[in-house]
Design a protein around this nucleic acid. Structure first.
Lengths: 336, 336
DNA sequence: CCCCTAACGCTAAACGTTTCGTTTATATTT
DNA sequence: AAATATAAACGAAACGTTTAGCGTTAGGGG
């Protein structure tokens, strides 16, 4: 059943050359043209494949990048993964995608797993991981690029979005259209992006001299259901907001479903701004106003930054790419 | 910057024991209690970690499973991944998740990548991959479990859902409630599950002696947008269906958005049955009737089957688990 | 015709494990 | 006390590569 593996030794024997020459050929060294032909033939004939494990043992390089994400059930995460991967593949790298399911222990374990697998670099969206733990990995010579979130106290390359101003801008759009009571459905308190988005919400209120009513701030968990539940809560308040801002895709989805269910007319009953997923925003009626995160840019910037570090180019370390979001205002927002 | 790696040799030197003894200890062999203490201390002191690459070279085992999926942008896929992973982790295996982006070449490449990474086994939802290619991997002694789809001509373990009857049952529910013109939004023709679901639709029509009107069959691509577009097409037909059946989650989402946009009242204008995602089905109003695929069972069955093969238990090879779906009829369906 | 210089190929030593066959130390039996 | 059995530790050879460093070859200039 199990075919015995073909090694360089076999190719060497087959061609009458030495193992070293085969290795040289494989790695693009100088080999006589006639021998090139010979070796190539042997490789095809025997079905030789480089044993990456053995190679990795020698070189301490695996040409593999680890991607460590909090979840795969969130299209922002998977979107980034996709874009990162595209760039890496173009550069001859493979990827190992890990999902730590928003679990602190798993996050640590999977990080160690990646290190054990000898990945050459890591791109991660961190959650609970400690600064020390990541530092340990970096000290081993494995470059890390953080995505979407920073880790306090850690000197590390990072690519993220200006969440504070994303939120600021979105809410400002509502304020300039006359809204004063603006509900916000925000992510879990512990999550960096949620914190920042809340800060933006608060700051814009301050800047416009509007008092923040904390009862308008609803903490969800970035899942569909909390968007659904919290929108209902907001709508049912006795002093309900005139506009609602939801801060990620899944909760936006849930919120819209709740609005449909309650026969709420957007924007006449409420103005509404959601997050992410342009595709959906176009589909909904009225067209949804959303904050658009540049997922492609994020993924590409992270991948390119990591590639740079892998080439031992440590210029501007640690660098921080803070990408701008775009607020797309469509029919779901009205002036009052 | 880069700490020099600690090896067994260092632990051996530190403890005054031989490398062989250290290895024995690591792998749970018999070692004097006093030496156990000594070694443990050294390991902690030096920060030793087994080099999995070197170990893999020797053992030809990596305790790693490859999961190869057509996309991560589909919650059916990510749901399965999650459940598979849970079981594997419990059994001491790690996973490498690969996304081949529904691309034939990438599917082949990533499969080879996994083989090169010396994964001990593979779980995949295949698409265009040839029977030969997969057979080649199996011949190398790497067990494969297919999920959700079969590959024609390949003797291979597989875990899937009885798609034909899933579709049959759903449509039957509509028929027994008096519907005769039933629209269906189906996946791409080339995809196995789509084929099967269409067969079920056709067969139930035959069994009830209802002629199939092919203009009621709409081929989508399993994405949100096609659900949106195709629902509109169906609704706008001059001889529109009285019920619509949508055959995956993403398209269901799109279809619902279209329905909302057109101010269609479900179920008075149309009866509606969707697919997957119980969470969403509960949220929508009226509660959505859906076909529920047992994602957890699928994932667990696939993982357990693979684990069995990894223990060299080849009983009932190739086995096929054909799991049953459940049709949950809620308010979105009415009698006419 | 010889020597020099490239160009190419070879030998052998790593890389960090596991594992086989042996040796050494200890305990048990006679 | 000698003989034997057992447990623990050891040395060394693998696993399939890469890579110095050295040796060989052929061709060209003097």
């Amino acid at each position: 059943m199990s075919e015995i593996a073909v090694t360089m030794k076999d190719v060497a024997r087959y061609t009458g050359l030495s193992i070293a020459t085969i290795s040289k050929y494989i790695n693009g060294g100088n080999v006589l043209d006639e021998n090139k032909v010979l070796i190539e033939k042997a490789i095809v004939e025997l079905g030789f494949k480089v044993n990456e494990i053995a190679r990795g043992l020698k070189t301490n390089k695996t040409k593999t990048i680890g991607i460590l994400m909090p979840t795969l059930e969130n299209m922002f995460c998977t979107g980034i993964i996709s874009n990162v991967e595209n760039i890496l593949i173009q550069n001859g790298y493979s990827t190992i995608i890990c999902d730590y399911k928003e679990d602190a222990k798993l996050e640590k374990d999977k990080l160690d797993f990646l290190v054990n697998k000898m990945v050459d670099g890591i791109i991660t969206m961190p959650h609970c991981i400690s600064q020390e733990h990541l530092q340990g990995v970096i000290n081993k010579g494995i470059p890390i690029v953080l995505v979407d979130r920073i880790v306090k106290g850690l000197e590390c390359d990072v690519v993220l979005v200006d969440n504070l101003n994303a939120s600021y801008d979105a809410v400002e759009q509502l304020i300039t259209r006359g809204h004063r009571r603006i509900g916000i459905i925000i992510g879990p308190e512990a999550v960096y992006t949620a914190e920042e988005r809340l800060k933006g919400y608060i700051r814009v209120h301050e800047d416009y001299n509007i008092e923040v009513d904390t009862s308008l701030i609803k903490n969800g968990d970035y899942q569909i259901e909390s968007g659904y539940t919290l929108l209902k809560e907001l709508v049912r308040m006795k002093d309900a907001p005139t506009a609602i801002f939801v801060t990620n895709y899944e909760m936006t989805l849930g919120a819209i479903m709740a609005a449909n269910e309650l026969n709420i007319n957007i924007p006449s009953d409420f103005s509404f701004i959601g997050f992410d997923n342009l595709q959906m925003a176009k589909i909904v009626k009225p067209p949804l106003s959303i904050v658009i995160q540049p997922m492609q840019q994020i993924g590409e910037a992270a991948a390119n930054l990591l590639l740079k570090r892998l080439k031992m180019d440590m210029a501007n370390f640690p660098s921080m790419f803070r990408l701008k979001t775009e607020v797309s205002i469509k029919g779901s927002v009205r002036e009052i």
